[in-house]
Design a protein around this nucleic acid. Structure first.
Lengths: 209, 209
DNA sequence: TCAGACATGTAAGTCGTTACATGATTCA
DNA sequence: TGAATCATGTAACGACTTACATGTCTGA
């Protein structure tokens, strides 16, 4: 069975806003969607060609002097395909967490190793959290004062009122997720330190007994 | 640059407990690690052969009548490779959430569509939560009463005291994550319903004004 | 003039799933 | 006897990343 090719819909979704080049799409994703999505050129350009072949988008080559821009415009069929995908049930991604795989195996290792692993994870999560919170406050401010910050203009476009809210809410998903991971770190670190002191007491007992 | 082949380490980790066949590994992963890891046969068997080629594991063919079991044992080099991986920094996985991609694009769709999408997600997350909570309570009980339930025996093995705790904590990671997602659903549903009523009021105003 | 952004693409390799293909054993 | 489980594997496909290759334009 063919897997659903999600890159197609990511592209189609952005093209449903306005015509764009592959480069535009890449930048837009990096700037605005990177907390839940990413694309590489190696995926982007071939998929764009495919979309054209299937009549879901059309390509117009524009020239500015010697510079060429391949601008892609979504077709009616493209819009249909996109809306169809939007309404289809969303399959849950199969998880594969390298961190958790390591953590699990730390059960057979000295406790200090588990602690080190979790602390490293905690630092990563804090960094992520900072980024999320910064974006969130910019956006909240924008919504409150009803102005679209310049750096967000390309992301939310003109018809912005609702889109801004959805953007904030999608960010909020990330914020809550990272908070949960940090809470887990606290809990776990506490548990592992208790375990460590239990072990060292047991060792002392053996030593003196 | 070659990506890190994580399947190798997932396998090596399990083989560091005891010799196993590909089938055993598959079952073990499904039974015990499925909340953070999964493997398919199409990945498993070729990787096992590779591990043998590289001297990280050895293969012994055992026969029971006409039935053959290819049992793999980790070598000293295999253990070294595994421990090395365990100590290496863990890269954060690049995210790609189809759900969030859809949600983001709902900003340009009727609010009801966004609500439908989130409600579907909420149901999925509740199902996941139920599974997590059930496993968690079995495990907590086991730890409290210091007995390893039969169905967990193959997962935690003999040297179980610490391993059981790590298993519980890894489950706890999933529990907190799913709780966070459900909290987001609540928040978001409330926000979208407010938005919906704002829209319908505006529509009425236009109708009567 | 030169760095950085704009712009397009391909090739090689990895990762991973699903479907297919095969056959033995166990137990109800 | 037949379904479920044990058991091993391959082939086809698709997704995705990284590195490579190339060239233009703009502004400090």
């Amino acid at each position: 069975m063919a897997k659903i090719r999600k890159t197609r819909f990511a592209i189609l979704g952005l093209l449903s806003w306005q015509p764009m080049t592959g480069y535009d799409i890449k930048k837009l994703v990096e700037l605005g969607l990177s907390h839940f999505w990413n694309e590489s050129y190696g995926q982007l350009y071939p998929t764009l060609s495919q979309l054209v072949e299937e009549g879901l988008a059309v390509k117009k080559t524009k020239r500015q002097g010697n510079r060429k821009r391949h601008e892609f415009t979504i077709t009616a069929a493209g819009r249909r395909a996109f809306l169809e995908w939007l309404q289809e049930p969303t399959e849950q991604p199969r998880v594969r967490s390298e961190f958790q795989l390591k953590f699990f195996h730390c059960g057979r290792r000295p406790v200090a190793e588990g602690i080190r692993l979790v602390e490293e994870y905690q630092i990563q999560q804090r960094t992520t959290q900072e980024m999320f919170v910064a974006s969130e406050s910019v956006l909240s401010h924008a919504i409150e004062h009803d102005v679209v910050p310049e750096e967000l203009d390309s992301i939310v476009g003109n018809n912005s009122t609702d889109q801004l809210l959805f953007f904030l809410l999608s960010l909020r998903h990330g914020v809550l997720a990272v908070e949960a991971r940090l809470a887990w770190c606290e809990e776990t670190l506490a548990a592992l330190k208790r375990l460590q002191s239990t072990h060292s007491k047991a060792a002392k007992k053996r030593g003196t007994g």
